[in-house]
Structures are given as structure tokens and as C-alpha cells.
Write a protein that binds this DNA or RNA. Sequence first.
DNA 1: GTTTAACCCTGCACGC
DNA 2: TGCGTGCAGGGTTAAA
Length: 286
Amino acid sequence: MELPEVEVMRRDLEKDVVGRRIKEAEVRQGPNALRVIRRHNKPGTKGVRKEFTSHLAGRKITKVERKGKYLLLHLDGADVLVVHFGMSGQFLRATKRQPLPPHTHVVITFAQGGDVRFVDPRTFGEMFVTAADDLGTVRELAHIAIDPLEDTFTWASFGEYLSQRAAKMKPLLMDQKVISGLGNIYSDEVLFGAGLRHDRMSDTLSSGEVRRLYRAVQEIVQEAIRYRGTTLPDEAYVDLFGRPGEYQNELKVYGRKGLPCRRCRTPIESVTISGRRSFYCPQCQS
DNA sequence: GTTTAACCCTGCACGC
DNA sequence: TGCGTGCAGGGTTAAA
């Protein structure tokens, strides 16, 4: 799940769970459920599950923010539930009567009825509670760079930063310390949109290329949110209510190896770069 | 400073 | 049919 999917989830939660009071939270049995709340597993803690759930019971959700790919659910009483979906994590809204899907690790039940389930087969996802005052010191959040949707993300400052680095564009775009929210799918799409190859060095970009890149980041992220995210067959992202996104139909290069480029008909190629699959058009990107 | 690889985990597509 | 193998991916960390 990358920025657009997390943002769609944030908006769903804002509409549907902000203002609701949590009746109780349950961490399911099994080692994988404990993995999801692993950050609470500090030495000296008596019951890890209790340590987590006691922060949630009786609290009202007051606001939902996003920082990069992290969601911050603010609770009254000045605590914050921090959530990262990893690659297979998701929140699902349901009623008590609906059976829990496999790999449900946490269930948050509301006082007015209904619940939200955190489901995550591969358990790369994570959730933990921290005091709002301590958010600045949380290691996972401290390094998260500027969000491409923020007003302060400008092409001038972006270009200035790129010129000071000498790194390949693909891993650089995926680096959350540089710009937050892009993962493997959208970094490929952004590079195609900007006409840049995955292995172009950041300090060789002309100002025109920087501007094209800047525009591609904003346009693709915003368009993917409008289409409610990308749902690929193998990693089936769905929104809070279980509905898939539509942006997979708009993808220009990701997952399209061997298929004709939508712009020039040249077959899309793929390479592995720093351990990640990268798709690109050898004709349109340089 | 930059890059690579390993690790965590499960589901799925393969090949035999 | 059924099993083993390899791959995918986000983020962190150690090593090159």
C-alpha cells in the first residue's frame, strides 16, 4: 500500500470512524498477531496484548492524519494509534456478525456497534499506540520526508535536493527520507510520466526534467487517489469497505512487461534494481 | 555517500 | 496429485 491507497483509507476512516468511541480492542491469538503489535513488546512489559488494548478501550477517535504511508488515529486523552499497512495489511469495516477473515490480528469494536479489523497475511504491517506528545520522537516517523501533496513541496526545493545527491532515480524516489509515500508501483509510473529511466542519476537532471518529474509526482498521486488506489490481482488492496481501486487500469508501465507501451508501442521492459522490480519503456524514458 | 543483500512472512505460480 | 522452490514487497539494518 502506497500513498494513494493510504490516503483513500484515511478519508474513509475520517468519514466513518472519527467521532466514534472504542468499546474494546482485541489482539487475536497466535504469534503473528503479536508481530503486528511488536513495538509494544518491550522488556519488562507484563502482558503485551493488554499493554496495547488498554490504551484503546473507552477512547474516542478524534482525527485521522497521514504521514507518508503511516496513518495516525488520534484518540481523546492525547494518545495516537499509529498504523502501517506494509504490503498486505488492511483495515476492514464490518459488523460483529460477519466472520473474521483469515489473518485478522486486531479487532477494534465501537460502542455504537460494528468494528474495524486489521488483517495482514504477511505481517509486514504494524500498529502501536504512543502519546501524542511523543510523536516527534517515534523512530519510525522521525525521518519521513515531505509529502508530495503538501504546499511546501515545490519543484525548486526538490530540484535543489536532487542536484546535491548522486543516486539512481528509482531507489531515490522510493526513499521515504527523500519524498514520502512512493513505493514500487508509483515510482515506476512517475518515472514514466517524467520520461526518466530508473537508473538516471539525480544530479544529471536538467531543470526541465526536474519540472517534468515534479509535475508527474503530483499528477500521478492525485489521479491514483481519484481512482481510489491500485488493486493488483496478487496483492488485493481494498478500501475500508472492501471495495477495490480502479487505478490498475491506468498503469502505464508497472506489471506490463512485454506489453506495448501505451505511448509508442515499444514492448515494456523490466529489470531488478536494488532488489526491486522496475518496469520502463526503453523508448520513452532516458 | 551510495549500493547491495538479508531479514521478516505468506500466498501463489511454477516445474517435476 | 502433491511437493519443493522461488518470487513478491516496505522498511530497517548491516555490510560492501
